[in-house]
């Protein structure tokens, strides 16, 4: 992991938050911080963000607290019975769909995107996927649906941290050549270093790409 990011203010806050809960999904939350920061910064009012890798909820809460939507006390309530849920649920700020079960967010994004096109609305749907999550077959069913319907309002961001629950992604179930996979499914593929400013810059560029769904593979170097 990149030292600068692991020791950033955001990740320090995250570590503090998770220190009392046995570092609950700490690593997959750390690698999601910069992605969420960029997406929330880019999000227009009617855009939708789907945290398909719902176990990165702690990172999402840290980002919400950075922009004043959650208090420090609320952060401390993480996973308490009356506190913030361990995986995101519908009703939290920006959260349209509960997650926690992997592989479903891209399909949900397609549904919102199709409805939005039907209404002629300008709306981006950002979906944050884990690289381990890509093992789920439904992701690839949905990837076909996005490109079949030319959903250029769907933007997937893969948190490519090369780790999944019990080991390295390439040892558990190899993902590479990952960009080629998405490309062959009809997606426009972009690879970028997992840094908020770089991802944000790319997100603005992507608004100009029309006619295809777009995926950013955000690499944790």
């Amino acid at each position: 992991m990149s030292e600068s990011l692991v020791h950033s203010a955001l990740s320090d806050k995250l570590k503090e938050m998770l220190s009392e809960v046995n570092n609950f999904h700490l690593n997959s939350s750390i690698t999601c911080l910069e992605i969420l920061k960029a997406v929330i910064a880019k999000k227009r009012e009617n855009d939708v963000v789907i945290l398909s890798k719902g176990h990165s909820a702690p990172a999402f809460y840290v980002i919400l607290s950075e922009i004043g939507l959650l208090s420090e006390d609320e952060l401390k309530s993480f996973a308490n019975l009356d506190g913030l849920p361990s995986h995101v649920i519908r009703g939290l700020p920006f959260i349209e769909i509960s997650s926690g079960s992997l592989g479903q967010g891209l399909s949900v994004a397609n549904g919102i995107a199709l409805a939005s096109k039907l209404e002629g609305e300008e709306k981006n749907i950002y979906v944050i996927l884990g690289d381990g999550e890509l093992d789920e077959g439904q992701i690839w069913e949905a990837a076909m649906t996005s490109s079949h319907y030319k959903l250029d309002n769907v933007i997937a961001i893969v948190d490519r941290n090369f780790n999944q629950l019990t080991g390295k992604t390439e040892e558990i179930m190899s993902k590479e050549p990952l960009g080629e996979k998405w490309k062959s499914f009809g997606w426009e593929v972009f690879e970028v270093e997992n840094k908020a400013e770089k991802i944000l810059e790319l997100l603005f560029e992507l608004d100009k790409v029309k006619g295809k769904p777009k995926v950013i593979i955000a690499k944790w170097e």
């Binding site: 349209e96 769909i97 919102i112 199709l114 409805a115 209404e119 069913e141 649906t145």
Partner: peptide, 16 residues
């Protein structure tokens, strides 16, 4: 792809 079908339907419902 029934799994994609159901989750896509969920997206439509979210969109009203």
């Amino acid at each position: 792809s029934e799994q994609d079908l159901i989750s896509t339907a969920a997206g439509f419902a979210i969109a009203g």
